[in-house]
Amino acid sequence: MTDKERLLQYCLRQGDTHIIFGYRLGEWCSKAHILEEDIALTNIALDHMGLGNAWLERAASVDSEKRSPDDLAYRRNEREYYNLLLAEQPNGNYANTIARQFLFDVYSVLYYSELLNSADDTLAGIAGKGLKEVRYHYKHSAQWVVRLGDGTVESHKKIQEAIDDMWRFTEELFEMDETDDIIAKSGVGVDVSGLKEAWKTQVSEVLEKATLSLPDHNLSRTGSKTGVHTEHLGHILAEMQYLPRAYPDAQW
């Protein structure tokens, strides 16, 4: 693999993760339990789409096939998508969504704090922008984890189940393959394996405040780095890509 191909791959992984998170959160539009949350989730969805676009722009700038950011988003199949499995998990009930976002938001704040020092100016710029946004995403999801956990018997049960359920997709956040290794060693990317301890500490702190416990299982599922997904991604792409694939000349 050349340097450019590696950087392309790295940017696609981060960009795809944001696009898919953005898509999932966008599905809440007009469906949340209160108007304020409907607006919150769709606002956060927009941030993810914006960050995803920034990553895909950087990806497109090193793509030997000269694909545009839109081509990258709309013309790749499931096996060519590299988003984290966590991102594609269904919204479920509100606790499922909050648990999914929370586990990622804690990670994102740590990730972008490190990426600020990237040797690649564009990535460092995305990190500066992203950090401001993922911080309030974290604030939003962490406050809901506490509210649900320290809420009623029912809300406590649901958020605990949701955290337990999403837990198996968190190992992947810290997974490194050869591409990640080389990109991290060159100072462009982040060695995410080094973020795991800090992540676990912060997650534990919020769970404790929420009267919740850390999951007691070690089940884990990974695969996104090679484009192997859970069944959910295909359904997302089928819907998301339908229009641009059916009408390739469509313009906004």
Binding site: G22, A45, L46, D47, H48, M49, G50, L51, N53, A54, K129, G130, E133
Partner: peptide, 8 residues
Amino acid sequence: TPTYSGCP
């Protein structure tokens, strides 16, 4: 520069 990265 965008105010927010997803600013429409």
